[in-house]
Design a protein around this nucleic acid. Structure first.
Length: 157
DNA sequence: GCCAACGTTGGC
DNA sequence: GCCAACGTTGGC
């Protein structure tokens, strides 16, 4: 059977959930995504897919480490919870709207590969997160880009 | 804190 | 179905 690993980038504001949190938790349900395109990307995910973990909206923005997809996509439970910030009145258990995957900690870089580093690397110019106005919190990543980011992370090691 | 870019909502 | 108004994201 053909199994091809795919690569993704997921953004998180470190104040709400950082790679440090993921390291401690080891695994987490990536709930709260309320954008159709991002949701569709998560629906495409397979267990074992590799994820660049990106910190947004913070002092040093960039990729801080690697995670991996740890579950098949399933309905985000927070959409059914009236007390949740992510509650969606239009979602029912029979007809869920929002899906998510579990992600598991893989590694944390010694130093982040910063947004500045990424912008300064010509071969990474076509990454989706660099495109102006790109606000997607989940994006697919080209395998070559993934490897380049890992190589940049190893500079310090 | 500002604001550009984007997605969503709702009136028509 | 259009589009103005609004809310959010996220880099700077």
């Amino acid at each position: 059977m053909k199994t091809e690993t795919r690569y993704w980038l997921m953004k998180s504001e470190p104040e709400s959930y950082s790679i440090g949190h993921l390291k401690k938790d080891r695994k987490t349900a990536w709930n709260g995504v309320r954008n159709y395109q991002a949701r569709n990307f998560m629906r495409d995910m397979k267990i074992g897919d590799q994820i660049l973990f990106y910190h947004s909206n913070c002092k040093v923005m960039g990729v801080y480490g690697v995670a991996k997809v740890a579950s098949a996509p399933y309905p985000d439970p927070t959409q059914f919870d009236p007390k949740s910030h992510y509650f969606d009145t239009k979602a029912t258990k029979a007809k869920p709207i929002w899906d998510l995957v579990d992600i598991a900690y893989v590694s944390m870089f010694k130093e982040p590969v910063t947004l500045i580093d990424i912008r300064a690397t010509p071969s990474l110019k076509s990454m989706i997160i660099l495109q102006t106005g790109s606000r997607l919190s989940v994006t697919p990543v080209d395998p070559a880009h993934f490897n380049t980011i890992l190589a940049l992370a190893k500079r310090y090691m």
